[in-house]
């Protein structure tokens, strides 16, 4: 049985609570719960250190800074709720940035995932050429977050840019998109939708993991194509769908590079692409209002927290995990 080194050697000095009562892991192996407990802390230690030193402590510090006025050079000065009050009551640019970001998330994420799922389903039943299509559709999401592509996007959708010229030959004269307040935000959203390849690949990987026996059993039971999709594919795919949804939503709230680039670094025209993170960067690192930027970061944190919590709550009713047995 147990031939490995004794567990004293592998358990870190971290104060480990006695786990006799909680053990109940397995009745078969004698010494196993204790051994596993020690091993677990070894495996966890890099993450634990990072969580404590690089995540939790900085979070608390930035919470403190959000109640101060701080320019990185002189000591932080306590101002109470001033930053938050100013933000919510007398900073129209703040609200503009929040609204822009919200619209962007609501437009870009559902459309991107819908396209990703549709293409993944198509590729899953396309047979020959699947590998080629997968790589080709995936390419944009490898490249799309880059500065290079954002620069291309700005050039393509500019006044006199290629898209404008093309539509002009059909008599549709828009005069550019990135230079018009009503359209610039959608150009950024379009760039995000263009990158549906990443969630698509994850969808495809999920589809490949659906056991064939389930489809065979469903077919034996007389289930048609639609029925098999609804009763087999979707439930088996729901963890992947959930994963993509949470991930893309959180990322979308924090989008920076395309907004920075398309807007020429300032969120223009007329603040129409002033995304939340862009304004945060502007306040913190251009205007040196670190306290205000920290307050903005904390509001973002709370909003993302609420949205994620809602998604997780809803997942109980529609996500199916197959590892229970």
């Amino acid at each position: 049985m147990n031939v490995e080194a004794p567990d004293q050697q592998v358990s870190p000095p971290r104060g480990r609570p006695d786990s006799e009562s909680a053990a109940a892991d397995s009745a078969t192996a004698r010494n196993r719960p204790r051994r596993r407990e020690g091993a677990a802390w070894v495996f966890l230690s890099p993450w634990l250190l990072g969580a404590a030193v690089l995540t939790l402590t900085p979070m608390l510090v930035s919470l403190y800074l959000s109640f101060t006025q701080y320019d990185l050079f002189t000591a932080p000065e306590w101002v109470g709720l001033d930053n938050y009050v100013h933000m919510f009551t007398s900073d129209p640019r703040y609200w503009r940035s929040a609204l822009n970001t919200l619209i962007y998330v609501l437009v870009a994420v559902p459309l991107q995932l819908a396209v990703a799922l549709a293409v993944a389903l198509a590729l899953n039943s396309i047979g020959r050429g699947k590998g080629f299509y997968r790589s080709a559709f995936y390419a944009p999401s490898l490249l799309g977050a880059s500065m290079s592509i954002a620069l291309v996007w700005r050039a393509l959708f500019n006044d006199g840019g290629t898209v404008d010229d093309m539509l002009s030959t059909f008599g549709i004269d828009m005069g550019g998109w990135v230079n018009q307040p009503g359209w610039a935000l959608l150009v950024v959203a379009l760039l995000t939708i263009w990158q549906f390849g990443a969630p698509m690949v994850i969808f495809l990987a999920g589809l490949q993991q659906v056991p064939n026996e389930l489809y065979e059993a469903a077919e034996v039971d007389g289930a048609g194509r639609m029925r098999r999709f609804l009763s087999v594919t979707l439930p088996m795919l729901s963890p992947v769908l959930f994963f993509n949804l949470v991930l893309q939503t959180i990322q979308a709230f924090q989008v920076f590079t395309p907004a920075f680039t398309v807007s020429g670094g300032r969120g223009g025209p007329a603040d129409s692409t002033l995304f939340y993170t862009l304004y945060l960067y502007d306040r913190g690192f251009t205007a040196s209002h670190m306290g205000y930027a920290s307050a903005m970061a904390w509001v973002l944190l709370v909003v993302i927290g609420i949205v994620t919590a809602l998604l997780f709550r809803s997942s109980r009713s529609w996500v199916f995990y197959n590892d229970k047995g």
Partner: peptide, 14 residues
């Protein structure tokens, strides 16, 4: 929870 943590919340102290 730290997945949903925006990097901006730890940026300045880091």
């Amino acid at each position: 929870a730290t997945i949903m943590l925006p990097q901006h919340a730890v940026l300045i102290p880091q």
